[in-house]
Nucleic acid binder design. Sequence first.
DNA 1: GCGACAG
DNA 2: ATCTTGTCGC
Length: 262
Amino acid sequence: MRPVRPAFVPDPDASREVMESLQREVAAAATWTDDFDFATESVGAVDRSLSAPDADPPLVAGVDQAFPEDRAVSVVVVTRGDTVVERAHAITDLAIPYVPGLLAFREGDPILAAFSELAADPDLVVFDGSGRIHYRQAGLATHIGVTLDLPSVGVAKGLLCGTPDEAVDGRPEGWRAPIRADADVENAKPGTAIGHAFQSRQYDSSRRINPLYVSPGHRVGVGTATDLVERLCDGYKLPEPTRRADAYADELKREHDGNARE
DNA sequence: GCGACAG
DNA sequence: ATCTTGTCGC
């Protein structure tokens, strides 16, 4: 496995104060400018032949979890272009309940356990949850991205904090608007863009779909994070790596549930 | 006290 | 996140 930075490993037994101060350290260690060696255009889309003829597409990992009973099923699915290269998972006991703002302390260790089973070294990791859109700018995607020192992005289905530039309802596919820091976001000048609301999918008629909330995890800029996610969505609401991880986690969860009722 | 709050 | 069937629409 890839080296972990021990100073940032989320300890589920820590007190709330210690958790929050670790998050401040994580935010200080995080970088929100592009720092990766692949081309943004080489990520995602089925037809990349025109934009990147000879480049090998980067390894993109999707991370997701399912929670059978009091345990966590954490999975990492690594894709190169359209091909799944590797899947890894870990099943662990859950130590602490979900607390908004402290998600990485509930899910971080279980996710790192899944990464410890992974042989591949991803170029980018897509997380289910916020990155920089966080009270201390250290959401799950940032925390684990920094811990593994990998470029990462956070994709959330709901907004944790911050203020959208405009109303987000009923926007057309492809629309995006900055999410700006407000009084709830530490160490950011109010007005600083910390992520985007992004309409990855929208129906032409009838029912409306909510936008995604995309933010940088680590080693990715705000605009690039959304560019990458846009390329990975390819007609669906969620990015391909996330959908693959979702499916694998569900599969393992059903397996787990099946074994449990016997 | 009230409201808000990723998964 | 999880508990869950049908149902509307392309």
